[in-house]
Design a protein around this nucleic acid. Structure first.
Lengths: 287, 287
DNA sequence: TCGGCTATTGTAAATAATTTACAAATAAAT
DNA sequence: ATTTATTTGTAAATTATTTACAATAGCCGA
């Protein structure tokens, strides 16, 4: 029994349950966090059924017994930390908004992780691996993402560049050729300049990977769309978590490329590490 | 009992434990995931002690009894999906390494969240709020973080700049004055050029906030150190999760500043939003 | 090193929790 | 309406956990 899917399992089995088992199920779904502190007697009473019915319910959702059920439930609860809306208010303390920002980011990452199109991801990695050069386009907050990506891929011996200037982007776009790859990054998915550049790149026969919301013009304009729908909790302040999600998706691409490149890359990375050491106070690590 | 800190609690209490309790502790730490499936008798036998000793151990680490202990352990295990080794191997499938990258990032974020010094964070927010100007210094991967930060704070009507060029950094540093704030970002915490710039900034009477590993020279050189120890799981590829942690910490600072600025900032942000709309395909949102 | 003291651990009993077996009751079908 | 199958609960048995207490081991001072 995978804990991450317990509540799902409960909901799934609901229709085929008996009346009193359903009472248990409904009570549990409505009182998830209390249930893990309850004994079988308490739960039976609270749900208005007998103890054996609770046991039967546990078996029905795929657990070995009541204890096993509680354990699985506890795990599921622990693994979806926020689960709900996180809105920073004017009166939040430092501790409160710190936790909210972290938790909402974590929440976003888990959602994005589960909604990624692995097929597209695979295609994107392959395209990057065989590309002559890889360029990143992005404006605003996505510009920082693009530069981060450039840095990362450059380390992986990929000929990478990043442009946040529309003129440079255009010049880059017109110089693209088949075998090249452009990665267009947009949080809004509706930046017209970016879409124009993408069209130009496609006309030149190069591949365009987009990291953007699904159903957005940017995603639609891509050869390989990597769609990311990170509902922004703190929208107005600036894209917080969705930008992080973009970065992590790029991390995944980078790991994919690194894996493809295999052994000789490791040596290159170690060389880089040694090179950077000269710029540092004696010790170890990477910047 | 906060589940997230159970293993920590076990380790903490280890020295003050009796011989046989320690046997229990050691067995548990070495067999975390098996223990949650064990009954008290099994565990007692496996650890070579009696059952009451196990109960005493549970109480010693702050739990109410054996069941409560198991529940807490289960939660901790579920909430730190990786706990230890997330190493991407050469044979991982796309799905595997995607999950590993996301999970290790989440893991890092949760750890960083729990280890942040809220006092320092508060001081940092206050310093930024009253600063005449705020500048971000960072090299390599941290340069992208710096530019991202600049963008974010600029939106918040903070006079922000970011420098990844040591010369510019130096020029900026020597132009600093009391009331100014520099935020030095470093993943390694040992970049000599950065440390030099920080010293100069301090000499000019300005405040230096560092985002760097604890005990690192960069953290030590700061007026307000925000220490972040993100053990890198996938070290060699490039700092993945720790860089994300830095970004999220900056998000927290930004939210803090936004909260301080209050109402009139909201209007400014809406204005910005409207301004950006002109650059987009009709619809809504931010980039 | 021995005797007395304290602290630690285990044994066994008691309590509490879960599960099983079975019987009552309800619902369904002929 | 009666029989049959299904569902549910009662009560007993089993199993697990906890407590009380006794035994033992370790420690300190003489």
């Amino acid at each position: 029994m995978k804990p991450a899917e317990l509540t799902l399992a409960i909901s799934t089995h609901l229709p085929e349950m008996r009346k009193s088992e359903r009472k248990v199920a409904e009570f549990i779904l409505a009182n998830l966090s209390e249930v893990i502190r309850m004994r079988i007697v308490d739960l039976a009473e609270a749900a208005g059924v007998s103890e054996p019915t609770v046991v039967r319910f546990c078996r029905a959702v795929g657990c070995d017994g009541f204890q096993a059920f509680k354990l699985a439930l506890a795990q599921q609860l622990a693994s979806s930390p926020s689960y709900g809306q996180i809105a920073v208010t004017d009166t939040d303390s430092v501790a409160e908004y710190t936790f909210k920002v972290f938790d909402s980011t974590v929440d976003t990452l888990l959602k994005v992780r589960d909604s990624l199109d692995l097929e597209m991801l695979t295609r994107a990695v392959q395209a990057i691996c065989v590309a002559n050069r890889v360029e990143f386009y992005g404006f605003g907050a996505s510009a920082a993402v693009a530069f981060d990506a450039q840095h990362k891929f450059f380390r992986l011996q990929v000929s990478a560049a990043a442009y946040a200037d529309p003129h440079l982007q255009n010049m880059s776009a017109t110089s693209m050729a088949p075998g090249d790859v452009v990665i267009a990054i947009s949080q809004s998915g509706r930046t017209t300049t970016l879409i124009n550049a993408m069209e130009q790149v496609k006309n030149r026969g190069a591949i365009v990977i987009a990291i953007a919301p699904s159903d957005s013009p940017v995603a639609q304009a891509a050869t390989i769309p990597l769609t990311i729908d990170a509902k922004e909790d703190i929208q107005i302040y600036t894209p917080l978590s969705s930008r992080i999600a973009h970065l992590v998706v790029i991390d995944v691409l980078a790991i994919g490329v690194a894996q493809h490149k295999g052994g000789q890359l490791q040596e290159h990375l170690l060389d880089l590490q040694h090179g950077l050491e000269a710029l540092r106070v004696p010790n170890t690590e990477s910047d």
